[in-house]
Deep mutational scan, measured.
Amino acid sequence: MQNSHSGVNQLGGVFVNGRPLPDSTRQKIVELAHSGARPCDISRILQVSNGCVSKILGRYYETGSIRPRAIGGSKPRVATPEVVSKIAQYKRECPSIFAWEIRDRLLSEGVCTNDNIPSVSSINRVLRNLASEKQQMGADGMYDKLRMLNGQTGSWGTRPGWYPGTSVPGQPTQDGCQQQEGGGENTNSISSNGEDSDEAQMRLQLKRKLQRNRTSFTQEQIEALEKEFERTHYPDVFARERLAAKIDLPEARIQVWFSNRRAKWRREEKLRNQRRQASNTPSHIPISSSFSTSVYQPIPQPTTPVSSFTSGSMLGRTDTALTNTYSALPPMPSFTMANNLPMQPPVPSQTSSYSCMLPTSPSVNGRSYDTYTPPHMQTHMNSQPMGTSGTTSTGLISPGVSVPVQVPGSEPDMSQYWPRLQ
Rank of each mutant, 00 (worst) to 15 (best):
I45Q: 14
S85D: 09
T80D: 01
P39N: 15
R92C: 15
I87S: 04
S119T: 00
G51M: 03
G138S: 11
Q47A: 13
R19I: 05
S121N: 00
G18K: 05
I29L: 05
A131G: 08
G73F: 01
R147N: 15
S35K: 10
I56T: 01
A99W: 02
I45G: 07
E133Y: 11
H5W: 08
R125V: 05
N150R: 11
V30F: 02
G138K: 15
V53I: 09
N17K: 15
S4P: 14
R67V: 09
K28W: 06
L146I: 14
N50V: 12
P95N: 12
V84S: 06
V83M: 03
V83G: 03
L149N: 06
D144T: 10
L106Y: 02
K86E: 08
S43V: 04
S35M: 13
R44I: 05
V14W: 08
Q47K: 15
T80N: 05
V48M: 06
N116F: 09
R44C: 05
A37L: 12
S6A: 13
M137I: 11
H34K: 11
D144W: 09
L32C: 06
I71L: 06
Y90G: 03
I45T: 12
R105K: 11
Q2P: 11
F98W: 08
S24F: 11
E93I: 13
V30P: 02
L107A: 15
W100A: 07
R26G: 02
A37G: 04
R103Q: 08
P68R: 02
L149T: 15
R59I: 05
V48S: 00
R38M: 01
D115I: 14
S132K: 15
D140K: 12
N124T: 06
S132W: 11
R128K: 07
D140L: 11
F15K: 05
F98V: 07
D41T: 07
Y143M: 13
M148S: 10
L127G: 12
K145I: 13
D115Q: 15
S35H: 11
T113H: 14
L21C: 01
L32G: 01
P68S: 05
Q10S: 11
R69D: 03
I29C: 03
L127A: 09
G7H: 15
Q2A: 10
K91N: 05
D104Y: 08
D41L: 04
P118C: 05
T63G: 01
E62N: 06
E133H: 11
D140F: 11
V8Q: 06
Q27A: 13
K145Q: 13
S121V: 05
W100Q: 07
R38W: 01
Y90A: 10
P81T: 08
P22S: 05
G141W: 12
M137G: 10
Q47C: 15
M148K: 13
S6T: 14
V84N: 07
E62Q: 13
E93T: 13
Q10I: 05
V16D: 06
S6Q: 14
L57T: 02
G13D: 01
G141V: 11
V48G: 01
T80Q: 03
M142H: 15
S24Y: 11
R26S: 02
R59L: 07
I117A: 14
Q136V: 11
I117H: 11
L32K: 03
M137R: 14
L107Y: 14
I42D: 01
C94D: 09
D144Y: 10
R59S: 03
P76Y: 03
F98N: 04
S96L: 10
S54N: 05
E31W: 14
V30N: 02
G110K: 14
S24L: 10
D41F: 04
E31K: 07
V111M: 09
S74W: 03
H5P: 12
I66P: 05
C52A: 14
G64W: 02
V48A: 02
S96I: 01
K55A: 07
Q136E: 12
R26H: 00
S96F: 08
P81R: 08
G72R: 05
E133V: 09
I71D: 01
I123V: 15
I29E: 03
G18I: 00
S108Q: 11
N114A: 12
S54M: 03
K91T: 02
S132G: 09
Q27D: 03
T113D: 11
C112L: 05
A37Q: 11
N3V: 13
L146T: 15
N150K: 13
I42P: 02
L127F: 07
